[in-house]
Structures are given as C-alpha cells and as structure tokens.
Design a protein around this nucleic acid. Structure first.
Ligand SMILES: [Mn+2]
Ligand SMILES: [Mn+2]
Length: 615
DNA sequence: GTATCGG
DNA sequence: CCGATACAACGCCAT
DNA sequence: ATGGCG
C-alpha cells in the first residue's frame, strides 16, 4: 500500500470529476448520497481558502464557512466537498443555493466534505479513498462544527441500492472505486448514478378510464426520424391537469397510431391514438432495452416544444471528430497590424489557427460578417457581410431571406482564408442556416458610458443575469474585448426575430425601470451618460455581434472571451484577454465555460412574458 | 488583399 | 507586364 | 429626413 508523501501544500488542486453511469458497475465501490449543490475545495493552512471546481476563489462569499473551517485542528489540509442548502426536511435543495449566492446570504450553507487530499504536509492523494475518507471523517467529527459535515458512506447492499435511494427521496448516488487514488481528472473511478431521468416525450395516445384519462402513451423519434413507442405514463397527474388535458386529447384523436411500432395491449385496455403533436415532460427511473420507460411520472405538458425534435437525450454526447486543418498561405506575415503593440499579421494568424478548436463549433452554420483592415487597425477598415465579387477560399456562401449571399466559416481553412484577406474581427448572426428566420439565441450587449468605473459593469452584468435567472433563463457571458460584457441566452429555435427582439427589449425596459440611474433602455449616446445602455438591437434579423474568440480591431488586439459567471466579480476589464495572453487562460481552464451552451434547451414562455407584462 | 483594366 | 484603380454593409432608432 | 450606431 502506498504511503503518504511529505510535500508542500499546492496552491490549487483541480477536482476529480465524475462519470455518468446507468447502474452500479461490478467490483467494490463506496457509495455516497449525490449532493445537488456546488463543488468546493477547501485549502486550510495559515488561512482558509474555498475554491470552486473551476478554480475560482470564493472564500469571500462564504465567510461563515471559512471561519468554521479555520477552527479545524490542523496545520494544513486540502478538503474536497460540496456546498449545499438543506430544506426543513433536511434534504438538499438547489434553487435556494443559487439565491443564497445572489443575495450574499450564505451563512446557512452546509459544507459536506467527502475527500481529504492533504493533511499536515502529507500528500494523501495516492492513498486509497477509504483511508483518505476515514481521516477526513475523524477530522470533521472531532471538530463538531455546525456547518461542516462529513458525507458518510452509505451502508447498503449494492443490489438494492437504487431502490433504497429512491425510497429515501434522493436524486442519485456517487460511487468511488474502492482502493482508488485521487486524480485531478475524469478517469471512471468516480461515478454518479441518477435515480431519475427527465426528458420530453411525444404524446401519441392515451388509455381511457373512468376518470377520462387512465394513462398517456408516449413516443420518441429514433435516429432515422421514425416515431417509436416509449411506454405508458400512469402517475403524476393532478385532477386539474386531467381536466384540461381531456378536451385537448379528444380533439387530436385519430383512428390509427402514428407510431412505427404499434405496441400490443392486453384485452380490455381502451386505447385512443392521437396526432403526434403534443409534448410532455416525464421523469423516469430507466429505459428498458426495448426502449420503454419504467417508473414513469408525468411532470407537465411542454407546450413550448415542437414534437418533431423529440428524441432520446444521450447520457454520453458523442465527441466531434478532429477538425482537419488545411493550410492557407499567409502572405506579409511580418506586417505590423497593431502599431501600439507591434503585433503582426503572423501573430494574428497563429492566434486564429490555434483558437479554431474553441471558436469554430460556435460559428458552425452561422452567417458571419468580417471587419477587414488591409492596412492594419490604424488604416481604413471596412465591414463585409456579403460574398459579392471575390471568393475567399473555403468560405461558403448561402442565401439569406433578403436574397443576399451570406458567408459561413465552418472550417479552419475558411477562418485562415479570412485572416489572409485581412479580416481581424468576425461577427456572427443569432441564427443558423437550419432556420435563419428563428434565432437560436439572443444577446444583451451591455454598453457603458466609457467613463463609468468597471465595477459598475460587473454589478450591472450580475443584475441582468439574476433577472434572467428569475425569468427561468440560463445565460452565458463573454467579454466584448472592448468596454462591455455580452450576455448570451441560448434558445431552442421557435419564435421569430420580432418576437425575440421584443422580448429582449422588454427585459431591458424592465431593468431600466427598476434602476434608472444605472441603466438605459434607449439607444443614443446621450441616453447613457453615466449609465449602461443594454443594447437589445443585436437581436434583429441580419444583425450581428462580435463572435466569441474574435479579435477586436483596436489597440492591444483584445479578444472576446467566454467566462464563467463565477469569475465575473474578479474580472479586471472587458479587454484583458488579448492574443498575447489568451492561451495561458485557455490551456489552464479545467472546463470550457460555455461547454453546456449547445445543450441548453429553453424557450421564451408565456409565463416569462407575463412577468414582464407584455402580450 | 485581389481582380481587372488600360497604357 | 505592371501600376492604377475599384471594391469589400445596412437596418434600426432617436431626434 | 437625417445622422449615429454597431
Ligand atoms: Mn457592446
Ligand atoms: Mn452595442
């Protein structure tokens, strides 16, 4: 067995990550309750520091926890755990955790430690997880702190694990492979097993019962686009839902099933088939090999979702293939394009060649415009949105609603061609060629009076994000590369440009009314003196906003950089990432701040509009 | 930065 | 052949 | 109708 090594406590440690599993794997595993909170690593030596899973220092946001941890009887230690909020029943709840950080009221947070990486100068990471956890348990139990607890190993028979957990009302479990060391990576030694899965299904029929509706029959589209049977949902309905649903289903009845594979029912079951247009959300325990849900519970109708796109959500999204890079000859590489720094066209080309892996997925099938500067950023610049005239190698053209030919940059070759053609900035649409009339995101572009202190921008961004969050919208952030911040809200394409712009404007009006001394909802420079104009006009058809990872054609060659919400408060400005320092950041990022943006399924709902008082 | 035109 | 020259957006909003 | 804006 490995012995602990004596070594100095590292300043930072990246967390070990969990893999998703569908059932308990063979072999010996230690199981704990899956805590639905925020991962947090604590370094305790002279002072206590709390770090998020992405390595940001959040000590200041949890002073109470830091203070308690400081009373641990250790010279030094690194603890891995999860910060959560418990409700009255002692169960973890996620929503109140978010609002705790938003309001700064974090004194009631509980820190559940589950691993000990260093103790008093000894590196425990090569020791078996059982040993590390035993030491942590002793440490925490001896201290008996009010808000710091140990995440106990579950004492249950693995064969009955899932049922037991389900009975306890937990959302899932985390397993650690017995004997495994601690590694700052995702290596399969840590797994999570979710008890419940949730996703949307197409309503393809129902069974009639005394109450009108006995159960819903649901289906999914397979890879070939065919609608296949996915089982019956018998529980989770309240009487109001049933009353509302009955006439809707009645109106959609059809004599034969729309399913490719019609299931057989035992005699006496009265089945009514439906046009496959309604979508409902269902929680379920598992999907059988035949593709039927088990323990399905109705969660509600999803009237905002079109039935056509509903298929099984994969637990392991497939990896995109390596982009093949074709070389484009860059001429005049020695030419200085930014006299303020001496940066050359070669350095710009190197940047775009290297950032392509991050940038190109976000540009895929999205019409773009270019800011070109043949004589450098101090020379004359022009904006190009069409491909009229000369072709740029590998840049595809496609016809937009107006009939004009728009440009697409889908490959590294196309990107490098643009650079050779003296492009510096790349701006993108808020829709893709899949449907150019339905935006797949909207952007709130925070434009400050240039004289405003940066702190105002941080506070403003945070406030807008809280408003979005309260509406139920997930947002993503990037620096503009100039003075402001861009807030990106991904959408499942549904509403048209007018509807999305009107909605984004309603958000801006709401905020400007809330805090008129900080925000303006009206464009024009004199409307934002001393304030921030939240520019919703980027959400018109044909409008573009500078793309993530685009360089800006201004002194310093700053880059528009995706950031985490959690690093906003420590950000020093919107221009701090430049082509000179950007890879120090990207290479050291544990995870892409926008990793889940493409998987974010959300639409503007009637409820959101109601909250904003429109339509 | 490139394509085309006229001297 | 080579140097000169043309060309590379456009819609929305405030006033 | 015009100018600013991105
Ligand atoms: Mn801006
Ligand atoms: Mn703007």
């Amino acid at each position: 067995m490995a012995r602990a090594k004596m070594s100095p406590c590292p300043a930072k440690i990246a967390p070990q990550l969990v893999s998703l599993a569908t059932s308990p794997p063979p072999g010996k595993w230690l199981y704990e309750v899956k805590l639905d909170g925020w991962r947090m690593l604590a370094r305790c030596d002279q002072v206590v520091r709390l770090f998020t899973r992405n390595g940001f220092d959040w000590t200041k946001r949890m002073p109470r926890l830091a203070k308690e941890l400081a009373t641990l009887k250790v010279d030094s230690a690194w603890i891995d755990g999860e910060v959560i909020v418990l409700n009255e029943e002692g169960l973890p709840v996620f929503q109140p955790l978010q609002s705790a950080f938003n309001t700064g009221k974090t004194d009631h947070l509980i820190y559940f430690g589950f691993d000990l990486l260093f103790l008093n100068g000894a590196d425990l990471r090569d020791l078996p997880v059982e040993i590390r956890r035993e030491q942590l348990r002793e440490l925490i139990e001896n201290a008996s702190l009010e808000h710091v607890r140990f995440s106990e190993t579950l004492d249950v028979d693995p064969r009955h694990l899932l049922e037991n957990i389900r009975r306890l009302g937990m959302e899932g479990i985390v397993g650690k492979r017995a004997g495994s060391p601690y590694r700052s990576e995702r290596n399969g030694d840590w797994i999570k097993i979710k008890i419940h899965h949730r996703q949307e299904f197409v309503v393809v029929g129902y069974t009639r019962a005394a109450a009108g509706i006995g159960s819903l029959l649901i289906g999914l589209h397979n890879d070939a686009g065919e609608l296949t049977y996915a089982g019956r949902v018998k529980s989770g309905f309240d009487s109001r839902t049933l009353t509302e649903l009955r006439p809707r289903l009645r109106a959609l009845e059809r004599p034969v099933t729309a399913l490719k594979d019609s299931p057989r029912f035992t005699k006496g079951v009265d089945v009514a088939w439906l046009e496959p247009v309604l979508v409902c959300e269902v929680r379920y325990a598992e999907i059988t090999p035949k593709g039927n849900v088990r323990h399905a519970v109705f969660q509600g109708m999803r009237d905002d979702k079109p039935a056509a796109g509903i298929s099984l959500e994969s637990s392991t999204p497939e990896q995109p293939p390596e982009p093949r890079k074709t070389q484009i000859r860059i001429t005049h590489g020695e030419r200085v394009i930014d006299p303020s720094t001496g940066l050359t066209k070669r350095q710009l080309a190197d940047y775009y060649a290297r950032v392509g892996d991050w940038m190109l997925p976000l540009l895929h099938d999205r019409p773009v415009s270019l800011v070109r500067a043949p004589d450098g950023i101090e020379g004359e610049q022009f904006f190009q949105r069409n491909t009229t005239g000369l072709a740029i190698p590998d840049i595809e053209t496609m016809h937009r609603p107006s009939g004009k030919p728009a440009m697409l940059i889908n490959t590294s070759k196309a990107l490098m061609s643009a650079v050779q053609m003296s492009a510096i900035e790349i701006h993108a649409w808020n829709a893709t060629t899949t449907d150019l009339s339905r935006p797949d995101r909207f952007i709130l572009d925070l434009d400050p009076d240039p004289a405003l202190p940066w702190l105002h921008m941080i506070e403003a961004t945070h406030l807008v994000c809280v408003v979005l969050q309260e509406l139920g919208l997930v947002s993503f952030l990037k620096t503009s590369g100039g003075k402001g911040i861009h807030i990106v809200v991904p959408l499942t394409p549904k509403d048209d440009w007018t509807a999305v712009k009107t909605f984004s404007q309603a958000i801006v009006k709401h905020i400007a009314k809330l805090i008129p001394e900080r925000f303006s909802a009206v464009s024009g420079p004199k409307n934002r003196v001393g304030r921030i104009f939240i520019d919703y006009l980027r959400n018109s058809s044909g409008a573009t906003t500078v793309a993530a990872y685009s360089v800006r054609a201004r002194p310093g060659l700053a880059v528009s950089m995706p950031i985490w919400h959690e690093e906003l408060s420590m950000l020093q400005g919107a221009h701090v990432f430049t082509i000179q320092n950007v890879f120090r950041r990207l290479d050291s990022l544990i995870e892409d701040p926008w990793a889940v943006l493409p998987n974010t399924a959300q639409t503007i709902t009637a409820q959101m509009r109601k909250k904003l008082g429109i339509r």
